[in-house]
C-alpha cells in the first residue's frame, strides 16, 4: 500500500492498532459498570496534562499520563464519597481538568494549532517516543487486565457479591481507574481528547448487540475497534480527512450495522424457517 511508504504513517498505524486493542479492553468494563462518562472525564482531565507539557517543554503525552493517573485516583475517591451521586465525581473532575487546562493554555501562551492537534488528534505527528509510551502502556494494560480478569468480571457483574466473596474491590476499582487514565492519556495523540471516549464505548456498544457471552463481547469489541481505527486511518489518508473523526465515524457505522444485524437476523431466520 502506497501510504505505508511513509514512516510517520507506519507509526500512526502501529499506535492506532495498539490503542484499538486497549480502548475496548478497558471500555467493556466501563460500559457494563455504567461508568462510560468516566472515560469522558479522564479525557478532559488529560487536557490539563497536555497543556502543562506544552508549557514546560515536557512531552505532552507524558504530561497527560501523569495528570490522568492523578485524576483517576481523585475520581475514585470522589466516587466513594458521593456513593449515591457517583456522576458528581465525573462532573467535578471533568470541570476541574478543563478549567486547569484553559488556565494553563492562556497563561502559557500555547500555540492554538498545537492545542487543536491534541483536541482532535493528529496521527501524522506521532513521534517515536509516543510509540514507545503507547506500546509500554498497551502491554501494561493488557497484562494487568489478564491478571485481574476474573476479579474485574466479578466486580463488573456484582460488586457487592465480589466484596463478600473475598475480592479486594477497593483495590480492584483503584487499579481499574488508573488503567483507564493511562489508556485515555496515551490514546489522545491518535484520536484526540474529544474523541477518545467514543473509541472506548462505541465498539463495545456494537459488540453488545451481537455477543452471546462476555468473552465474545470482549473479542468483538476489539475487532470492531481495530477495523474502525485501521479503516479510519486509511480512509483519512486517501480522502484527506481528519483521522480522529474518521475513526469515530467508522466505529459508528459498525454500531449501526450491528444494530441492523440484530434486528434483521431474527426476521430472516423466522422467514426461512
Amino acid at each position: 500500500m502506497e501510504m505505508f511508504q511513509y514512516d510517520f504513517l507506519q507509526r500512526a498505524f502501529l499506535a492506532g492498532l495498539i490503542i484499538a486493542v486497549i480502548c475496548p479492553v478497558i471500555g467493556i468494563f466501563m460500559v457494563l459498570r455504567r461508568m462510560s462518562l468516566v472515560g469522558n472525564a479522564l479525557s478532559h482531565i488529560s487536557m490539563a496534562g497536555v497543556a502543562a507539557g506544552l508549557m514546560t517543554g515536557v512531552s505532552p503525552t507524558f504530561g497527560a499520563v501523569i495528570v490522568c493517573l492523578l485524576g483517576s485516583g481523585i475520581i475514585e475517591l470522589l466516587r466513594k464519597n458521593f456513593r449515591r451521586y457517583a456522576e458528581l465525581a465525573v462532573a467535578i473532575s471533568m470541570s476541574t481538568g478543563l478549567g486547569l487546562a484553559v488556565l494553563l493554555i492562556s497563561a502559557g501562551n500555547v500555540n492554538n494549532a498545537t492545542v487543536m492537534s491534541y483536541l482532535f488528534g493528529s496521527v501524522v505527528t506521532t513521534s517515536k517516543s509516543d510509540i514507545i509510551i503507547i506500546a509500554i502502556t498497551g502491554l501494561l494494560v493488557i497484562v494487568t487486565v489478564a491478571l485481574l480478569y476474573s476479579r474485574l468480571f466479578y466486580v463488573t457483574f456484582d460488586e457487592e457479591g465480589a466484596f463478600y466473596a473475598g475480592v479486594d474491590t477497593g483495590l480492584v476499582n483503584m487499579i481499574f481507574v488508573l488503567l483507564s487514565g493511562l489508556t485515555v492519556a496515551v490514546s489522545i495523540r491518535v484520536v484526540g481528547i474529544l474523541l477518545v471516549s467514543p473509541l472506548m464505548t462505541i465498539p463495545v456498544a456494537a459488540s453488545l448487540q451481537l455477543a452471546t457471552s462476555f468473552k465474545q463481547a470482549l473479542a468483538f469489541s476489539i475487532v470492531f475497534a481495530v477495523i474502525s481505527v485501521a479503516g479510519g486511518i486509511i480512509l483519512s489518508y486517501y480522502f484527506d480527512l481528519a483521522p480522529g473523526g474518521t475513526i469515530v465515524i467508522a466505529a459508528l457505522v459498525i454500531l449501526f450495522l450491528s444494530i441492523l444485524t440484530k434486528k434483521v437476523l431474527p426476521v430472516i431466520k423466522s422467514k426461512s424457517a
Binding site: 466479578y154 455477543a211 452471546t212 462476555f214 465474545q216
Partner: peptide, 12 residues
C-alpha cells in the same frame, strides 16, 4: 450483561 450462566457461576 452479556455473561453466560457458566461465566457467572465460575466468577467466584
Amino acid at each position: 450483561f452479556p455473561g453466560t450462566v457458566s461465566e457467572v457461576v465460575q466468577a467466584q
